[in-house]
Design a protein around this nucleic acid. Sequence first.
DNA 1: TGATAAGCGAGACGGTACGTCTGGTCTTCGA
DNA 2: TCGAAGACCAGACGTACCGTCTCGCTTATCA
Lengths: 220, 220, 220, 220
Amino acid sequence: MVAVMRRRHPLSPTAGRPGRPGRPRSAAADTAILEATRAALVELGWSGLSMSDVATRAGVAKTTLYRRWPGKNELVVDAVAVLFDELELPDRGSLAADVEGVVRQFAALLERPEAKTALMAVVAESTRDEALRARIGASIVERQKRLVLEGRARAQARGELPEAPEGGPPGAGSAVDDLVFDVIAGAVVHRALVSGRPVDTEWVRRFTALLLGGLGAAGD
Amino acid sequence: MVAVMRRRHPLSPTAGRPGRPGRPRSAAADTAILEATRAALVELGWSGLSMSDVATRAGVAKTTLYRRWPGKNELVVDAVAVLFDELELPDRGSLAADVEGVVRQFAALLERPEAKTALMAVVAESTRDEALRARIGASIVERQKRLVLEGRARAQARGELPEAPEGGPPGAGSAVDDLVFDVIAGAVVHRALVSGRPVDTEWVRRFTALLLGGLGAAGD
Amino acid sequence: MVAVMRRRHPLSPTAGRPGRPGRPRSAAADTAILEATRAALVELGWSGLSMSDVATRAGVAKTTLYRRWPGKNELVVDAVAVLFDELELPDRGSLAADVEGVVRQFAALLERPEAKTALMAVVAESTRDEALRARIGASIVERQKRLVLEGRARAQARGELPEAPEGGPPGAGSAVDDLVFDVIAGAVVHRALVSGRPVDTEWVRRFTALLLGGLGAAGD
Amino acid sequence: MVAVMRRRHPLSPTAGRPGRPGRPRSAAADTAILEATRAALVELGWSGLSMSDVATRAGVAKTTLYRRWPGKNELVVDAVAVLFDELELPDRGSLAADVEGVVRQFAALLERPEAKTALMAVVAESTRDEALRARIGASIVERQKRLVLEGRARAQARGELPEAPEGGPPGAGSAVDDLVFDVIAGAVVHRALVSGRPVDTEWVRRFTALLLGGLGAAGD
DNA sequence: TGATAAGCGAGACGGTACGTCTGGTCTTCGA
DNA sequence: TCGAAGACCAGACGTACCGTCTCGCTTATCA
């Protein structure tokens, strides 16, 4: 017997079954709010962004914001999550080329000011907010990780990597997938945001070489 | 002939040569403030921390805080920087063991709640504040990077790694050092804070294998 | 064609026509704030009164204060102005008795600690703030002056004073009215607050005799 | 047997018998401080004046101020008191002319911005500070009142007024003197600062007529 | 001549209030 | 029932002054 909880802040904020009584929520408001949030992030950065300001930019009342998102953290996660929808991994013919592609995609994202300032901030907040961490995982991290899984599957199809021996669910990701993902995403983020140096061709080449060179050793 | 600039907020806030007129700054206040900051971070996290609260905890007036640090960002950097002073790398006899040691040190630090909540937050802020980035680099990043440089030098002394062919200054770090540092620090941070999974023995083993396996390939 | 200006701080702070959108201002807050202001004046005096303290006493947020009054000066003027609403001049049958009545009314007001400490202070501030002077004039001075005009009109009706020959608006007050008002109010205030002596029966008798004795001479 | 109290803040701040050990107080500092106080009053008004600012203007440390005056109130009283030393009453030949002279002297003083802003303010403060009231009385009020006493004595010498029947000390001032002083000073102050109108020739003429006309009646 | 004592500048100190801003909530009206 | 508007409480922000203190130094008197 599962009690159906009344979720006040669903991931898709406007949702709500159609047959519900009363005036339906404006879908246009959602779009305007998320756009306004990204614009505010670009202009003011994470710490300069305020809910009131977003409401004003979006031409919306503060109540409307709080009815859809519980706070600044969640709003920003949703606002930048759409940027990660654009991530794609065209087949470049070899594992090495695909890895370079992934790295460049991550790096390109991190150069967008709205992503740069927001990502680290919401991760920081998520260290004390389990629900926020889950939202980030679902909206952002999984979208990134998908690329890694795709790349691995493609390489196995090409015969560049052996088939995974383990019997987990096919799309779930093994321990090696997790490791590779942490290494790729972590290294790029650290290079770009902590070391503050460009993710340029030379660096991508070296990094890819290191990763591929080490891949065999990590599988055991 | 270099003009010595009057730094208003030096890294060591109390400094100032002794002959300066006026009542000297209380060194005890510095200690109390930094301790109070760490305590507040543990209890309230980054976003819950307020300058007023730190002042109250430290038994100090708000003016005393602002006289020494320009804002919350800088204060927190200094408060957590001392945690990185404890980092050490005992010689464990082999490169692999030393890498595992470094990884564990980083991971242990990131488990401390004051570091966990603060590090990502100040990095996020630093994306829009060049001075803050420099302060983080000097106080925190360099302290971490030192371990990598030491480990590499030790491995070279043992003959596990070839002598670096390039002629830069010995302690400065080559492109490979930078890469290795970004990979290690980035992967550990990503594992711990983004993926939200433990940096356990198994993971450390796999990661070290990957890194060492790839090291030769990245050197070119 | 007169542009209607949007007054941010009208004399009656809560005003605003009913059709205005948004939550209306709480009328109860107004009352509580003005009462709290008078209480704080009695306890702490003008210089000890602080906006924060008034807000706390009134059980109101500071923003609510500042939304209605631009500062301490204006708040205090409004808070003490209501004391002057109680001023009345019952007909005592003769000009001399009426003058004594006015004098006693003024003196009684100046014995109230909230008026004593506030009146001089806001007048002092008004020497460098034209808007404040206007507010004081409308809220306080005019209320006092009305008594003088009434007393004069009554005396004329009784035949104790000749009809005013000049043709100004009947209620506006002539130069003699102004002079008499300045003499009465000024003398009482000076006696009470500067000389620091009681406005007792003897003094009132002497003062009234002086004023009435001189009235004829001043009319030319 | 009167215990000689060690007065920490004598009226003449620099005083102190010459034989006292230690470095004597700088008399130049006194002058500079009082001048700086008047300048600050002109520029910033009473409420804008701060001890720190006065110290800076006078080229003096804050400690030096507080060693001489207990606070802003007392400092300002002393600073404006010297303006009242200039008051003089040349013999103009008749009581009426002398009264007009006194009135003009008061009015001229009240037109000086440093006096205008300071006088009412310190009187307001004095309503809750007995010592301050005494200081104002001695430094300011008595200096004004002296003119009234002189004028009365002169008129008696001329035969314009009867000799006072009472046998009090000659310079002390009778009840009528007190009344006349309160009427003159009060009316002028009220006209200038409360009503906010000029003390011009016409007003002075009318006021003097009223006062002299009423003088006989008040004496009983 | 040297000890003693006070004054002096500079500036840090613990406090308090300022007036503004933001976070979330609540209350009104009109759609 | 939603949405816009805006008032509401709470509390942090960073600044300004308050009046006191702690320095190192100077300038007097007295022994």
